[in-house]
Design a binder for these strands. Sequence first.
DNA 1: GTGAAAGCGCTAACAT
DNA 2: ATGTTAGCGCTTTCAC
Lengths: 350, 350
Amino acid sequence: MEKTSKITIKDIALQTGLSCGTVDRVLHNRPGVSKKSYAKVMKVIKALGYEPNIYASLLAQRTVRVIVILLPALKKGEFWELAESGINRGREFALKLGIDVQKVVYDEYDIASFREACEKVLAMKPAGVVLPPMFKNETLLFVDKLRQNNIPHVYVDTKLESNDYLAYYGMPIYQSGYLCASILTDNKPAKEVAIVRIQRDKHGQSDPTMNRREGFIDYISEHFPECRIHNVFINPTQPENIDNILEEFFSANPQVDLIAMFNSRIHLVASFLEKHRDRNYHVVGFDNLDANKAALRSGLVSALIAQRTGDQFYSAISAITDFLIFGRTPANRDNFMPMDILTRFNVEYY
Amino acid sequence: MEKTSKITIKDIALQTGLSCGTVDRVLHNRPGVSKKSYAKVMKVIKALGYEPNIYASLLAQRTVRVIVILLPALKKGEFWELAESGINRGREFALKLGIDVQKVVYDEYDIASFREACEKVLAMKPAGVVLPPMFKNETLLFVDKLRQNNIPHVYVDTKLESNDYLAYYGMPIYQSGYLCASILTDNKPAKEVAIVRIQRDKHGQSDPTMNRREGFIDYISEHFPECRIHNVFINPTQPENIDNILEEFFSANPQVDLIAMFNSRIHLVASFLEKHRDRNYHVVGFDNLDANKAALRSGLVSALIAQRTGDQFYSAISAITDFLIFGRTPANRDNFMPMDILTRFNVEYY
DNA sequence: GTGAAAGCGCTAACAT
DNA sequence: ATGTTAGCGCTTTCAC
């Protein structure tokens, strides 16, 4: 409980024979300072090891800034809902530091709605933006505008190589597929594997599952070159057909006992699995959606690989507030979150 | 970048007809306020949705408080070293809020050194204390003194049922043993298992491995009632003997192919395993020490269960700063951290 | 270009 | 028990 005794602007003003106002101008690179004064102030700042007091600064400024989270609409039970907790935690944290956090959402299947959302964000003149880059080209255009306005942005989930982002928080996608394969095969001879995939037309959307699939296939061909990999396509918009498709495929291929899925919808195969518990399928999926966890608990799914989606957003928000308030860029630009392996036995504590 | 228009203490003073000083007193539960005034102020605070401005508060206080972390000396390559990163992150965070974080260490095998450390901590008049309760009775005495001085404390790693702690951050110990068994047996018939244990005399130390062992044994007897569990004792202070002891045991029990260890020292059996790669032991241990991760990478150990030790400390520090600055008690008193399953394939991203 | 001074919202010491 | 007031260190007019 000791008093602090730090160097202040006043000290610098006295030492340089200038006034607080001028020192402040120098500190913030504001115009209207002679070269002479500028140099003098800088010298004394260095000499005295002056550190500005952010509290005093923030108090005097009394402006409220906003960080925008630009992401697909959060639908109940679907992937992006996992972001919510992290966003809320981030908002709570940021609010205490005088920064607001607001969501702007769009339809992840509708590029026009994305463009609209981008406009909306720019109009808000945010102090920073957090976003998963869903539409690659559109996103590049958008972040370029952000750059022009000196608005930092942080990627979550996936990243683009735009080279002007403040930070990235996500899972190592390729490796996650590799890990998935290792868990699925359990390092024991694998003969035939089915990858269940989603049928959807993509309009230039970045597809994280592609990299993941690569990692998966690489593991399999490295470890079980003779293993055959099947692809089964289902359509989530026609749930009533899923079981039929699966029935058909698996009765035609009774040797297949390993199943993997690279998006967050492994729960879609749960009802099929339920009907064929006797076949002892070994199943691995991704992401801790409630429906997926239920399938895990009931033993239909062996393992889930989760990626702390909430934490990604929370970290992203923290990174921006840190940058805005303390002027600190994150220690690492690319931050790979852990891949969490969930089984029946640790899922309750996740 | 809009101006803030928030409710201030002054507003409350006006509304209540009292002065800023009194409002401040109420806000901080300082003595010298009549019940009437107190109630009036509280009512208006609620009504107006007043939120204190931490910047103004911190600026005006200009005192530096300290949170003490009381823990065993961090030895290179040993368990407590894992706490370091979290402590450092916590310190960095807390410093920005004007709170310092300092470590006080003791010898975890020497109760006298613990007592000494406790005295030292009390002499520092800390604003809060974070500690793993290594010596049960001594710790209870210590936290009682803290309570008398209104110093909040947070448990990490293990907790005591002292009922006066602010929060606890740790792993669910029993479940971790259960999980360990499930990974080790991989749900396949288990015949004989060896638990490698550490020989040391305990002076009333709380033993987290005991609960963990219980969970392990419960899983085994639930799933493989006929499975035999062996105990092998090694002594880390005599590393030269470890290999001999293991050689002796495993040649006498050649049927044993599953090995588990409940403390952080699975790396001690690595050299033995290296010599007998042909026997394909299936080995599961705890904690992500560098030496353990090396054993994992080289395939000697199949899996490690890790507990985010750093995060436990970081969370603990955050909880205390939150309490001190924002007056907020944590949402949950007992916080169980995830149990992370590490394999060769996800360890690089941990 | 530069200085003076009035706050920002809160705390704490001193009055009453 | 309550009010008054002088700061905390910085920003931001406004004047010169």
